[in-house]
Design a protein around this nucleic acid. Structure first.
Length: 234
DNA sequence: AAGCGTGTCAACCGCGGGTCA
DNA sequence: ATGACCCGCGGTTGACACGCT
């Protein structure tokens, strides 16, 4: 299937916005393949969808990000990485594109500078890396932490985390909850990666790897409050 | 005033995953 | 099982605004 010829590109006009808005109001969101024809627009379905989601949809917040929004973005990004749609889902009125743009323009540089500052300070025990940490099932079930490699004074907290994941929706409960499948897939993905690293690395490397992961885990524990936000409505 | 560099943001592109025949 | 199609996502681009020299 080739590209649609003579499809209009570039900025949207007010007239196009009105047509699209009327179309969505009449037929509802979704079925984007029908939208250009229904609306009488010479645009591709992707362009229509993007315009609606990022600009025309009701309740979209515009203008400066509030301090608490920025704080939440930073913390969610630390936790989730560049999963903009997921981050946007936790910040009412903001689109994934807005947040991505804001991050790229304002925050990424700020965070890099902060990382540089922090990593050059000897007094900081662990660098507060901007790398994201996502828990895997081994961590949370305690199977890794319970090994002979190390024991942590935070075992109680780990058990608490374990109980959190155990309460996550199971496969058979996910029909009404998209978030459940996300978390499960993420857990499996990270667990997979950990398994691969352990199997390919030598013993000493494996120990370092585990220690690194533990440091990250400590960082994650400090974000329990944030996890509660993320887990809301899951 | 003009040219240039930088910042901002809307929009496009390509890809991965899901669905359905 | 497979391929076509569709949706949604993240990365990137390009146009415009703005400030500085």
């Amino acid at each position: 299937m080739g590209r649609l010829p003579n499809v209009r590109k570039g900025s949207w006009t007010q007239e196009e916005d009105i047509l699209l808005k009327k179309c969505i109001e009449k037929y509802g969101e979704g079925k984007w393949r029908h939208v250009p024809a229904r609306a009488g627009l010479n645009r591709c379905r992707k362009s229509c969808r993007l315009r609606w989601l990022n600009y025309l949809r009701p309740n979209i917040k515009r203008g400066e990000f509030a301090v608490d929004e920025v704080d939440l973005i930073i913390r969610l990004h630390k936790l989730l990485g560049n999963r903009w749609s997921l981050i946007a889902g936790r910040i009412p009125g903001r689109t994934a594109n807005d947040i991505k743009n804001y991050w790229n323009c304002h925050l990424s540089k700020k965070m890099s500078a902060e990382l540089m500052r922090v990593t050059t300070q000897d007094t900081i025990k662990y660098p507060t890396s901007i790398n994201t940490f996502t828990p895997n099932s081994d961590y949370l079930s305690g199977s890794m932490l319970g090994s002979e490699m190390y024991r942590s004074p935070q075992e109680e907290e780990i058990r608490y985390c374990s109980s959190l994941t155990e309460n996550k929706p199971r496969q058979d409960q996910e029909e009404e909850d998209d978030g459940g499948s996300f978390w499960n897939s993420m857990l499996y993905e990270v667990a997979d990666n950990s398994e691969k690293s352990f199997s390919t690395a030598g013993p000493s490397e494996a120990i370092h790897h585990k220690n690194d992961l533990f440091l990250e885990f400590e960082g994650w524990l400090s974000n329990m409050e944030l996890w509660n936000i993320v887990l809301e409505n899951e």
